[in-house]
Structure formats: C-alpha cells, structure tokens
Design a binder for these strands. Structure first.
Lengths: 152, 152
DNA sequence: ATAATTGCAAAGGATTTGCACGAGT
DNA sequence: ACTCGTGCAAATCCTTTGCAATTAT
C-alpha cells in the first residue's frame, strides 16, 4: 500500500498510532483509512461525517460514505477520536488529545463552538455521582447560547 | 369533543394549562392531544416517542405516530415538556416542573436515570460562559457510568 | 492464500411532511 | 363555514449493513 498524501509531523505521529492500533487488532492499513484519518487529524475538530466525506473525496473521489463511517468507528474505538452529539444533528468528531478533557459552549446562532475546561466543575460532578453511588465513565456538558458576536 | 380519559388532579391542571396555550395560539383541543398529554403528565418521565405512542394506543388504537410527534412539538414549544437527547437513541420527554432545572446521571448498563441539581455547578457554569462572553440559553449536563447496582 | 476492506445500494431507526378526510371552533 | 388536526404512507436525515469485487497481510 502506498500513501498519496503528505501529512505533517503531528499527523504522522497520529497515523503511526492508528497503525499500531490496527496491527494490534489484526486489522489492515489502507490508503482510505490513512486519508480519512489525515483529514480528521489535520482539521480543527467538530466536523461531521459528511464534511469528512467531502474533504476525503477531494483527495480520492472514490471513497464512499461507509468507509468514512467505518474509519470513524475504528478511530472512536481506539480512543483516538471522540464523537460528540450536539443538539440533534449529525455526530461531530474531534481528535482526543492526550489525557485531556474538555466540554463545549455552542452558539445557537452562528454555530461557533468554544471549548472549556473547569476542574472545579469536574470535582463537583464526582461528588454528585458519589452521592448517588455512580461510577462515572464519561460525561457531557454543553452550554447553548449566544456568543459575544451574536448577542449584540 | 369528549374526553374518554379520567385524569387525576395534577394532570388536570396541566391539561388546563395546555388548553390555555392552545387557545392562545389559535390551535384546537382534540381528544388525541389530551390523551397523549395525559400519558406524559402521568408518567415518570424520560419516555421516548415510541413508548408514548404505545401507551396512547392502549387507550385509542387509532392514534398515529405523527400525532404523537406533533403533540410533542406543541408541548415542547409551550415549554411544558422538555426534550432530552441522551447518547444517540431517540429523544426522551419529561414534564418541565415549575422553574426547576435538573441534569442527569445515566447508567450505561441498566439504563437507570437519576436526576440531580447542583447550584454550585450552575454558578461555575455561568462564570465559564461569562469569561467567553456567552449568554447561556440552556445547557445539558449528563454523566454516564454505572449505578450502584451495576458496578458491583 | 486468506481474511479484511471497499463502494455501492439497500435497509434501518427516528422524525417530518404531503395530502385527503375528519373534527373543533 | 372555516380552519386546524388526524392518520397514513411516502419522504428525509443520519448511519449501518449485505454483498460481490478488491486489496493488505
């Protein structure tokens, strides 16, 4: 298999990580997987499957929707990419950065998405869960409203 | 229009409130709307459209899916019912209690849903939004994990 | 060689919509 | 009377799947 794309350094690392994951699972590396993964790795995140599909098609007009969804599943299962469901619409994907967690502020007017992190909230969350004897695996915390530009 | 159902007191109040809303919007009261609304008003919440449809059909086997969805929209628009999207699955509905807000803890194993309220978190949230100059309209805060019974 | 992957089109689940008929005001 | 609501089936959106052909190991 030969790669047609020329990814940058960070992307290369991520591709290698994916490759390791594939080997460890007895799966194969394909140029489609590399292509789609590269698109995500080099994006600014919060893209949906359709956007990924369009972007991938610019490099290789033959990739199908299924391959995009299937690659997304591999990436999701490997923990390298996280899937988010904002509002109803399609799922959005973003690279999960090393041991980092963040939540989102979403502008319902212009669609702008801002990430935030707040340890105090995380702590309180744990306390709430503990009180109910829940063991938290993951959470989702989204705030919808108007961003600075849209609330003028 | 005649009502075939015999709702309890609290439900009656809610039905009246819906009725007022309908009049105010130039919409009509129908036995289907009353039936579907009664099912929600008397439920323990977190039901999806299909469950509502099944329950309504026990009283009147002719109600269609569309009527359920359309009634849900009316209820949602009136603010009497809130729609939640947990994970991906179908939307879940619950009666919005007077000026009250709560978030959820969801057991990914047994599906149990526990509500929680934490003012401190709400305050911190506002602070986070303010820092980004966002005006929050609503938010969603869910924690997924194992409940006491499922983590043994 | 063997087993996994691809692209396509068809199937799926959840929700919405067009339309002719029926019901509330 | 007039307008809105209903039920059905068809349509839509997002995602998954079956399958025969192709490709990585």
């Amino acid at each position: 298999m030969d790669r047609k794309i020329v990814p940058k350094k960070e992307t290369r690392k991520l591709l290698d990580k994916m490759s390791e994951y594939l080997v460890s699972k007895g799966l194969k590396s394909t140029k489609q997987r590399d292509l789609i993964a590269t698109v995500i790795f080099e994006s600014k995140g919060h893209l949906d499957a359709e956007a990924l599909y369009q972007a991938a098609r610019k490099q290789d007009p033959k990739v199908g929707h299924s391959t995009v969804y299937r690659t997304l599943r591999v990436l999701r299962d490997s923990g390298m990419v996280s899937e988010r469901h904002f509002g109803d619409g399609p799922a959005r994907y973003e690279v999960s950065r090393e041991g980092e967690h963040h939540d989102h502020l979403i502008c319902v007017k212009c669609g702008k998405i801002v990430e935030f992190e707040n340890e105090e909230i995380e702590r309180l969350q744990e306390a709430v869960a503990a009180k109910q004897k829940f063991v938290i695996l993951h959470h989702r915390h989204e705030m919808y409203g108007h961003c600075a530009g849209c609330s003028k």
